[in-house]
């Protein structure tokens, strides 16, 4: 497959749609096995390991997170949360033969019961072309007001 800017942009849109529709099986399949979903706690944080982040999750944690959402005794998901992404057109920042980097500004809405929160986020995707398919190598999600006190963020921005 030939990767064009449009391929990359479509990929980012498709991923957001999977998250909004709760299509987690397909979403997990987008990932390379050693990928990490990183959500920093600090503004412009550079170290995900030796300092607290909101999330820094390997595939085991992401599977656990997704599997838990449907559990019979997942009390914080009774009733379930819903989410909604609005994307600006992704910037394609780096484009090599099989490695790509995009940056996308989004508004993320998550809701449950009578509460709804809006997060302005910047998502950086490290993508890789492996066996003819685009995959997520790593994803970094920065929340603009990362230093604010948050209520539960239960789904995936």
């Amino acid at each position: 497959m030939t990767v064009t800017r449009d391929t990359l942009i479509d990929f980012i849109y498709d991923e957001a749609r999977m998250l909004d529709e709760g299509n987690y099986t397909d979403w997990l399949n987008l990932w390379l096995p050693d990928g990490h979903y990183w959500m920093p706690l600090d503004y412009k944080q550079s170290d995900p390991i030796n300092q607290t982040s909101l999330m820094y999750e390997d595939m085991f944690m992401l599977k656990l997170r997704v599997e838990r959402l449907n559990g019979a005794r997942t009390f914080s998901q009774k009733p379930k949360s819903r989410c909604h992404h609005v994307l600006q057109r992704p910037f394609v920042d780096e484009m090599e033969e099989t490695r790509f980097v995009t940056t996308t500004f989004m508004h993320y809405v998550e809701t449950r019961l009578d509460e709804q929160q809006l997060l302005a986020i910047t998502a950086r995707h490290d993508l890789a072309l492996v066996d003819g398919a685009l995959r997520i190598a790593n994803k970094r999600v920065d929340i603009v007001n990362c230093d604010a006190a948050f209520r539960n963020i239960q789904l995936l921005p």
């Binding site: 607290t52 982040s53 539960n152």
Partner: peptide, 13 residues
């Protein structure tokens, strides 16, 4: 740091 984010973050399951 891992304990803090896995157990006590607003994003913690």
């Amino acid at each position: 740091a891992m304990y803090n984010r896995m157990i006590n973050a607003p994003t913690s399951i």
